[in-house]
Amino acid sequence: MQKTTPTFEQQLHFETQQYLAKGCRWLSVLSFILAVVIGITRLLNIPELNFTFTLISILPLALVSLYGAMRDFSLPSSQKINDYGRFYRYILALILCWITVCNWLILSAPFAQGKVESILHLMMFALSIAFFPVRRLLLFAVLIMSTYMASVRIFFFADELFFPIMKMLSFLGIVISGQQVIEKWFRKSIFKDVENQRLVNELNQLALTDSLTKLSNRRYFDAMLTKEIQHCERSGSAMSIILMDIDFFKKLNDYSGHQRGDECLIELAKLLKHQIKRPRDVCARYGGEEFIVLLPETDIAGAVEVANNIKLRLNQLAFQHPDSLVSEYVTVSQGAAQWQPGINAEQLIKQADDKLYEVKATTRNNIAY
């Protein structure tokens, strides 16, 4: 009956997976567009470029980007909380393709350093946004790109070591600081969502549960009975209910006090929980001392067998009732009814109630059906 609320770790894992999947997708779209634009622009601006060499340099990036844009990264490869291997593999492939394109730009134009650095800055900025929930993945991607950018300055353009390395370290410091700030916001947001879900589930549970016995209440039972009747109408399967009433409960309250009466209700509720165990079965407190049981896929013979078991177990429980007129222990009168085509929930409950009244008017501590 109660909807399970995910834990913070479960929700964090789920939200992180979803965010990384979306990040990979729009990063792939961005890379594909940039690859096409770079290739066309270079061919138009530098006609002497070898078309085959240009295509070979751009094509891997375009294909990997297209693959990433079409793949559903949200599907986990395993149930491990921190398993992000598919993201590592894809980003490594994408970065290697970008390094290939940058090398091609530098080799095809002697003064392409500024454009290469602009592209690398753009990609590192995009990576920082796409992967901020997972610091290791973010650093893995950004460190490769920034190391490559520093290497380009040192080896291709003979810059001194100090400036490229300081630039790389400064960029990494900014990325890590920004990631820590955004990660805190991300975690707080998820924590609030989990708490809200928990509170909503608790409120729903309170609205559908009897506070004393912790059984379902009448509101929940009526809803489930209506649903099971609809199922029976479609499938033609059997379904029965048992309505029961504690014999001389008012006398128990008057003689032993209301606290003793509450104890009686709680003990009967525990007994019903142990007897009614199938997933679709429902036992509920239907009124003051009235309880009702819903038995899907059960005909009247099965319902009577369940009612007899309840009577037997209650007798074994031996809950003292010093003022009962039928036994020294607490007993219940029960009325059972089976659903028939064409009758609604109210009519079915009335049939069980009529049978319950027969027992109460004659023998008590018995079953009518």
Rank of each mutant, 00 (worst) to 15 (best):
A126G: 08
S256W: 08
C232W: 03
M123Y: 15
T7M: 07
S189W: 05
P60I: 02
D83C: 05
Q320R: 06
L208N: 14
L105T: 04
F132V: 06
A223T: 08
S31L: 13
I176Y: 15
Y88S: 03
D222S: 10
E267N: 15
M168V: 04
T362M: 06
Q2P: 13
Q113N: 14
M166V: 13
F249Y: 06
N45G: 12
V64R: 02
S78C: 03
D210M: 02
I106P: 08
L271P: 00
L120R: 03
K3T: 11
R135K: 09
E289L: 07
V330M: 00
G288W: 09
Q320F: 09
L268S: 11
E9D: 15
M224L: 11
T331I: 05
D159K: 12
V175K: 11
C232T: 01
L208M: 10
L143N: 09
H231R: 12
P164W: 01
T209R: 06
S65Y: 01
I46M: 14
S28H: 06
V175T: 10
F221D: 01
L169G: 00
L27V: 05
L63Q: 02
V101F: 03
N82P: 01
N366G: 04
T5W: 07
F221R: 00
Y84E: 00
M168P: 07
I46R: 13
K80L: 07
Y357G: 01
A361F: 05
F163S: 13
S77L: 08
V326P: 00
E117F: 15
N309L: 10
V64N: 02
K188C: 08
E289W: 12
S211I: 13
A69W: 12
Q18P: 06
R198C: 10
L107C: 08
S78F: 04
T147G: 13
E195F: 13
L272Q: 09
Q275H: 15
R25D: 05
E195D: 11
P6K: 07
A141Q: 01
A368S: 10
Q205N: 10
G257R: 09
V101Q: 09
R198W: 09
I129M: 04
E267R: 14
N366T: 10
A21T: 02
L12E: 06
L12F: 13
Q180V: 12
R187E: 09
L137D: 00
R187T: 08
L348Y: 09
T331W: 11
Q334D: 01
H258C: 03
T52P: 12
A336L: 06
I349W: 02
C283V: 05
R89K: 11
A62W: 03
S211G: 10
S216Y: 14
L271T: 04
T362P: 05
Q338C: 09
A361G: 09
D262L: 05
E297L: 12
A223C: 08
L169E: 07
T52C: 07
L314R: 04
S216C: 14
A109S: 15
F140N: 02
I190T: 04
N344K: 01
D299S: 06
L172H: 03
F319Y: 10
Q205T: 11
G178H: 12
K167Y: 15
I174F: 13
F162N: 08
L122P: 08
T209M: 02
N309G: 14
Q11I: 02
G257P: 08
E267M: 13
